[in-house]
Every structure is written in C-alpha cells, then in structure tokens.
Design a protein around this nucleic acid. Structure first.
Lengths: 119, 119
DNA sequence: CGGACTGGTAAGCATATCTTACCACACGTA
DNA sequence: TACGTGTGGTAAGATATGCTTACCAGTCCG
C-alpha cells in the first residue's frame, strides 16, 4: 500500500494529512463526511486553522487512527516508532483475551530466547 | 443527571474539570500554566468554548491524564487502555525483527480464527 | 479538446474568542 | 462580627478567527 519510509510527520496538521491519505480519502470526501467545506479541510492540513478536540476525535475515527498518534505524543505507552508496532498494538486489541494471554507468553519466550543468545 | 463523585463524566468539558480537580489544580493555576486567563478555563469546562487539539494535549500532560480518556475513548481501537496491551506493545519493540514478523503473522492467524467463529 | 477530479487560496461576512472587569460564595482569622 | 483571600461564574466591547463562496492551477482520462 504505502511504504514511504522517509516520511514521518511530526505536527498535527501533517499527521492529519498523512492519515487521510493513508485512508485513501480526498479532502472533498472528508469534507462531506464531516459536514464541512473543502477549504476547511485544506486549511486544517495546512496548519492555518485550529482543530478542535471534537473534530480531531471524528477525524481519528474516520481515518481509523489512534488519537494519541494524531496528537503527537504517546511516548510512554507504546513504541510508536515502528509502523509494524502500531499495527501490532491495534491488532492486539481486537484479539480475544485468551489469545492475548497466549501471545504474551509467546513474546516472553521469544525475549528469553534472545537474551540467552546474548543481545 | 448531575455528576455524582462515583459517576464518570461523559463530555469533554466535564472530563476536563474532573481531571483538573483530580490533579488538585485550581482554574487560576491552570490558567497561569497554560498562559491563559481564568475565564477561559472556566468557559472551557462549561462547554462554552471549543478546545483545540493542542490545548487538549497540553492539558492532558498537565493533568497527567490520557488523551483518549479526555476525548471519550473509543474502546475499539484504543489499545492503550488495557495494561496488558501496553506491556505487549512495549515488549514487541524489544523483539528482533524476525520474531516480530512471525508474531504479526500469528496475530493475523488468530484474528482470522476469531472471525470464522463469528465475532 | 472538454470534462471531472484533485488541492490551494482570496474576500467579505458571521461568529467565536480574548480581555478586563465585577459578581457571589466559602473559608480562615483577627 | 468584619476582614482578607481564595475559589469559580459571567458580562461587554474589541479583536481575531473561522466560515462561505468563488476562482485558480494542475492532473488524468475519454
């Protein structure tokens, strides 16, 4: 789909644009879904317009993106550096509790294995 | 329908107030820390003023609260709520790339299994 | 070429926000 | 009691912001 490794937006507007494009939506589409006008979306992504909390919540839901990622900080909860980790964290939430438990044990086993080899 | 101490506030303004009080801060204190005026804080909590994304991020940091909670979290994709998921995400970052890839496939397999059984 | 899509931007108007000020209430103390 | 201090709520004018409409340029495809 989209493997452009060099890009990593830091500001909220930049992330909004990245998330929208990742969702495969045009500004016009988003505008209709949000009951807004196209220029509004454009200026939001250009950083010329403030984004309210409600708007960001809607957009995050629309783009299927985590709020904390759009806001730019969640450094203590999860390692968001690796896109695969983001995916993994999201997928983990959809698993059944039993599966999650099994997975956690598996992870622990893998880590032990790594340590024994000397990391 | 007032907010009794045991009830959780539902709207963003109500959560802002709850978070502020939980942090033991007065509106005046917050205003100074945010470089704003007291009435501004008051109207934010009263719901008479919109809260921008940046403001909410600052407030969340100030109140030591999760952004997702302030915004009325979406449990579907807010994987950060479950402590086990936080742990998992953190542990995932310590794995070797190969192990991570294998794990992702495993997760996908588990998800498929769940879907087949009917969610 | 003509048409439909994409996104960016300007101008004027409507609205929201800022700023200052004053208000009432509660608490602790001389 | 009366006072001072802290809390938070609210009003009014000035200002800043966002909204709405419109037009612009570039791209892609029939």
């Amino acid at each position: 789909m989209n493997d452009t490794p060099s890009d990593k937006p830091t500001t909220i507007p930049a992330r909004l644009r990245a998330a929208r494009e990742a969702a495969g939506l045009s500004q016009g589409q988003v505008a209709k879904l949000m009951n807004m006008h196209r220029p509004t979306i454009s200026e939001m992504e250009a950083g010329n317009r403030r984004i309210t909390a409600d708007e960001l919540a809607k957009l995050a839901d629309l783009y299927d993106t985590k709020l904390s990622w759009l806001m730019g900080d969640a450094p203590d909860r999860a390692a968001t550096d690796d896109p695969r980790l983001q995916l993994a964290a999201r997928e983990l939430g959809k698993l059944k509790p039993d599966d999650l438990d099994r997975l956690l044990k598996l992870i622990a086993a893998m880590k032990t294995d790594d340590d024994e080899r000397g990391a």
